[in-house]
Design a protein around this nucleic acid. Structure first.
Lengths: 333, 333
DNA sequence: AGGAATTGAGTTAGCGCTAACGTAGAAATA
DNA sequence: TATTTCTACGTTAGCGCTAACTCAATTCCT
């Protein structure tokens, strides 16, 4: 490994003090243009790159943030992560990526190690921490952005970004109503999921608008995977074979449900119409292509990073962003 | 934000020197057990967490590594990343994640910023850099692991991990032969991809074993996406409608090809048998389920991290790992 | 019992960088 | 001309931590 060129090396070569070099590198005033250019040329020539750790120690800013996701393998989070990373790259920030594996103990543990690194802020996606634990984390980090999670109390160093799940569900119900469907089931996600609760409310509100009475028999909880969708759909259709529409917690669940329908000899969308949420790539790969509530995931990622930088830079901004999803009508409904 | 507890704070509270506290925290010899315990208790009580940046500055070790992938949105890399991160978590390492967007200029740029952070090592997946550029990177980082990329020269701080693409292709051809297929096409990946070249060689070798003459008409290059697979398969089948087997560069290409076949009224696997590579989650979601060369992706990720730590810790080890994929026979062939 | 080896600390210096203050000389002002 | 104000740099100190050295007190050996 080659030895790094340091500020001191350049200072010696240029026969000036380290401070002068520092000023030149950081484009700060206090030296003549010729000298600045000379130092810059020298730095270039000597292959100088500032050591960000050392700079971080001195300035207490690391230009590094943490990104906490349940599972990067899930395309939903992968898309968000991609958006975050792209925006971070543009702003010269680096990101620490950690997976919580949907486990709140591990989530607390990784936040702990992240905090040790002295990072400037964290973006936490779909946190499983309790309200209390989350508040503790918020007061220890300089800046936090919460994606897919709400918090009752508001803090000055916190911004939340949430999808409008309520409206999303209502829009789906609206579409089912337009299609003339009456037996509309909801294949919900994990019970402790916040989005699930909001979508359930939206589902109920949608039923009221469509003038359809609520029926608890049409509800089933599913793990947010294809397998979970299969299991939940199988249970649902065994209990109520006359279901003619399914609103799924997400696209994976929707695909699982679609498979089960087809295996039971039901045609999609003729016999059962299915709508998912998220619009992951799979939605257009599967046949029939999935009608789904499109959520601009990479956009959320970019927004999350910008929001975080806004907090770090002390700009006054909304404490909460609401993302409006859009119904993408394809072939399954 | 709360003020961090530092070593100095504890030293003052315990009325000992900072060094004594440092020794206690890092479990180094040189102090009595009682004093050590007392300091540890105090540290716990005061909520002390070492500042890893400061430690990194002093020790020149950051317990941080970089992970460079073309696109975390691609399930192939997401799985590997997950393996890397899991193993990193177990070893108390943190990872910087960066996407190159399959662009060699951006790849060089992110490696540059990574290097500035003074990280202990990098794992680079599917590097697009030239041999020369890669060698430059290798000599500037303490440790490097290359996944899905070979290098002619060998270096002491470098380990490569590659899938046995040659054998993989041969195994596929073997299976097609067993199925009695004769017109076997290869839908290759990008021309500059190393795996693609190796698979093409394996394909040719497989043809020889199967006693089938090589026919360049059966070759088509595809972008490694579903869309790319569709385009390539369409071109292929237009030219040579009698194709009865397709070996695809990866599962996404295979799925695209499968769709095109079905849309043209060909049955899979009866009329056209299709085999992919990688075994991403999609392979079991799609219908018919995809027969594919299974590659243990998270295992590769874990292996990559362990290999990197081995280099960092100066353990003598193989310079190259070869991963043997396995044929998972499902419904498409 | 006297010197060597060991134990349990403290002291010093420095990782690479920057904030804050200091200072010489030139230019501007009175 | 004496004084103030800039301009262009240099000096000092410190971010939080650790490596390497020092040193006093105890233990051990012959």
């Amino acid at each position: 490994m080659i030895k790094r060129t340091t500020l001191a090396d350049i200072a010696k070569a240029a026969r000036v003090s380290m401070m002068t070099v520092s000023r030149a590198i950081n484009n700060k005033p206090g030296l003549s243009d010729e000298l600045r250019q000379h130092i810059l040329d020298l730095a270039e020539e000597m292959g100088y790159r500032p050591n960000t750790f050392a700079r971080g120690l001195a300035t207490q800013q690391t230009t590094t943030i943490g990104l906490v996701v349940p599972d990067i393998t899930n395309p939903f989070f992968a898309q968000i992560a991609r958006g975050v990373e792209d925006a971070a790259f543009e702003n010269q920030y680096n990101i620490f990526l950690v997976n919580t594996n949907e486990d709140d103990v591990r989530e607390a543990a990784v936040l702990d190690t992240l905090w040790q690194k002295g990072i400037d802020g964290v973006i936490i996606c779909s946190s499983r921490l309790t309200e209390e634990a989350l508040e503790y984390q918020i007061q220890r980090f300089p800046a936090i952005v919460l994606v897919n999670r709400e918090l009752k109390t508001s803090q000055s160093n916190l911004i939340t970004i949430n999808v409008n799940d309520h409206r999303s569900a209502q829009r789906v119900l609206q579409h089912f109503k337009d299609l003339g469907r009456k037996k509309i089931a909801y294949l919900g996600g994990p019970e402790n999921s916040f989005s699930n609760q909001r979508r359930l409310e939206g589902y109920k509100a949608g039923l009221i608008s469509a003038d359809i009475p609520f029926n608890a028999q049409l509800l089933e909880n599913a793990q947010p995977t294809t397998e979970g969708g299969r299991a939940a759909a199988a249970a649902l259709l065994k209990r109520l074979p006359e279901v003619d529409a399914i609103f799924a917690f997400n696209d994976l669940v929707a695909v699982g449900a679609m498979q089960v329908c087809q295996e039971m000899g039901k045609r999609v969308p003729e016999d059962v119409a299915i709508i998912g949420v998220d619009d992951i790539p799979l939605a257009t790969i599967i046949r029939p292509q999935l009608t789904t509530m499109h959520v601009a995931l990479t956009h959320i990622g970019r927004l999350a990073l910008r929001a975080l930088l806004d907090i770090i830079n002390g700009e006054g901004l909304p404490a909460a962003y609401q993302i409006e999803p859009e119904l993408f009508i394809r072939d399954s409904a």
